[in-house]
């Protein structure tokens, strides 16, 4: 089988300092995306454990797997979790969810915790969609748009290019800066046409790094035009898988004239984290 350059790694994490048995409310958020799924477990609103995995062809199974992997070595079972919220594209396929909430609301709520309550604009670039969200100091959504119709500006578009150029997806960002000067962006928006264009550039003798730089630049520009519809206000953050690609993040910040806030949290768990926060609030609301 040919090497698959688009493949990224799965992982899990758990807190060394929190004992879940001391908590009043254990909540869980599960974000079943089209490409990856995350599970986040909170103990009284504090991050306790999480996992990130590829979504399989069976969504309910993916939700269960993500949950079980987050619970690994915690001594906790599903029965110890008070409230589960499902979110993301496959949210209706979380069999054990108490409630489902749209990922737009969850991303805003998650970013509010991850980056602080000064966050006003969130860009989430997922595997098969791109979301632009404005929110207030409570993490409540004030304006949003989502684009899941077109692969341009999504992780999938970047995967297509990583594969075309045989560059491991994790290396795309760094390599895109290893060029003598920034090339003009790929002119086609459509990924299919951009691929044809890139093949032409390679034939002209462009090195791979220059081609990927031209694509990163095109993708950043496209996302900027998407953001203009809702308006960008600082503080600005980028979540989702593409948030880890410096080739996009740095070019975007430059074009927008805004630095993106950094966080110690993993940017990919924003949706699941928000879902878990709503889970905690809903569990406590039900109790009162």
């Amino acid at each position: 089988m040919a090497k698959e350059f688009w493949r990224w790694k799965e992982y899990n994490w758990k807190s060394e300092t929190i004992d879940w048995k001391d908590g009043n409310t254990v909540s869980c958020g599960i974000d079943v995306g089209s490409v990856s799924s995350q599970a986040v477990i909170l103990v009284d609103g504090e991050l306790y454990a999480y996992s990130s995995m590829r979504t399989g062809s069976d969504s309910p199974m993916s939700a269960t797997n993500a949950m079980n992997w987050a619970l690994e070595d915690t001594g906790m079972t599903q029965d110890n979790v008070h409230y589960v919220v499902g979110t993301g594209y496959g949210r209706v396929n979380v069999p054990f969810a108490n409630k489902t909430i749209t990922e737009i609301a969850c991303h805003a709520r998650g970013a509010n915790l991850m980056y602080g309550n000064t966050v006003r604009t969130i860009l989430d670039m997922g595997g098969q969609d791109c979301k632009a969200i404005r929110c207030d100091e409570k993490g409540k959504v004030t304006n949003f748009l989502m684009n899941d119709k077109c692969a341009a500006g999504t992780g999938r578009g970047m995967e297509v290019f990583a594969d075309l150029l045989s560059i491991p997806i994790e290396d795309v960002g760094e390599l895109s800066f290893q060029v003598d000067e920034e090339p003009p962006p790929v002119s086609s928006t459509c990924v299919v046409f951009a691929k044809t264009e890139a093949t032409g550039l390679l034939r002209e003798g462009w090195p791979k790094n220059k081609v990927i730089a031209a694509y990163c630049s095109a993708m950043s520009h496209r996302v900027v035009t998407l953001l203009q519809r809702i308006g960008v206000e600082s503080d600005f953050v980028i979540t989702g898988g593409i948030g880890k690609n410096v080739g996009i993040v740095r070019r975007l910040s430059q074009e927008l004239g805004f630095e993106t806030l950094k966080t110690n949290y993993d940017s990919q768990i924003a949706g699941a984290l928000g879902a878990a926060l709503f889970g905690r609030a809903l569990a406590e609301k039900a109790r009162n």
């Binding site: 098969q128 077109c150 692969a151 999938r156 578009g157 459509c190 990924v191 299919v192």
Partner: peptide, 10 residues
């Protein structure tokens, strides 16, 4: 049979 995806890549 319905096709949900509009984009050629999807």
């Amino acid at each position: 049979i319905p096709m949900n995806a509009q984009c050629a890549v999807f």
